[in-house]
């Protein structure tokens, strides 16, 4: 698969986690691809941390857009009919208060205890965590979509995260181009495999310990 095909494949599976009417927060980058793959009959409300419910994507022509409607990356966006705006304070109240069904983010590292590191690489990046820590501590479901390994082929799913954490014990599912992993109190359960991927393939590319159930589903 090409890089784009991998991203689309992960997004398509992730979008299947959404139920009709869910309020979903999508992180910047790959998570926004989920909107292209919503299952039929599933209509979701996009919550954006900057204070809007019902964001609807970039306008066809940026010049036609309202510069007072932006998404979580600060780019001009649009709102659907029925959407509403509120303050950052209200927004994080929705997020921490459990009123957001799922938050979807990328990660540098995830570990078998459900710890997530996605905001800082000491000595390399110091952008700040933005809303990520609140999103991960507050949303009902934390879905991590990412490529299984880094660009050097090293597992991003570890026994123990090495980078500063974004949140501890908060991740619910990890969706990669190889598999879907469910973070449970007992550990990471291999719930689904991508087509033509074997249990052995996943184990070989994963640093974390995995729980292999008798029955494993398919990602498609």
């Amino acid at each position: 698969m090409t890089k784009q095909e991998i991203r689309n494949f992960i997004a398509k599976r992730t979008a299947k986690f959404f139920n009709d009417g869910d309020v979903i927060n999508l992180g910047i980058g790959m998570p926004t691809l989920c909107l292209d793959f919503l299952p039929e009959g599933v209509d979701i409300w996009i919550e954006s941390e900057n204070g809007v419910l019902g964001l609807a994507g970039a306008p066809e022509n940026e010049e036609d857009g309202d510069i007072d409607i932006v998404d979580a990356s600060g780019r001009v966006s649009t709102m659907r009919v029925g959407g509403c705006c509120f303050s950052s304070f209200d927004s994080f109240g929705l997020i921490r208060g459990g009123h957001v069904a799922a938050t979807v983010l990328g990660a540098y590292e995830v570990d078998q205890e459900g710890n997530l590191a996605n905001w800082m690489v000491p000595g390399k990046t110091c952008a700040g965590m933005g809303g990520a820590m609140d999103l991960v501590s507050g949303a009902k479901n934390v879905l991590i979509m990412m490529e299984h390994t880094d660009k050097y082929g090293n597992s991003k799913i570890l026994k123990k995260c090495t980078l500063p954490l974004t949140a501890a014990n908060e991740v619910d599912y990890i969706i990669t181009e190889l598999c879907v992993l469910h973070c449970t109190p007992e550990g990471l359960v291999l719930e689904e495999l991508a087509p033509d991927v074997t249990v052995e393939d996943v184990i070989a590319k994963t640093d974390a310990d995995l729980i292999i159930p008798e029955k494993i589903g398919s990602m498609v």
Binding site: E49, S87, S88, F89, S91, F92, I95, R96, C126, G128, M129, G130, G131, A132, M133, D134, G138
Partner: peptide, 18 residues
């Protein structure tokens, strides 16, 4: 910030609001 010309204290966005 990297060059030490500005000091920064990071606060999670929701915590900043609260």
């Amino acid at each position: 910030v990297v060059n030490g010309e500005i000091n920064v204290t990071f606060v999670p966005q929701g915590t900043l609001c609260e």
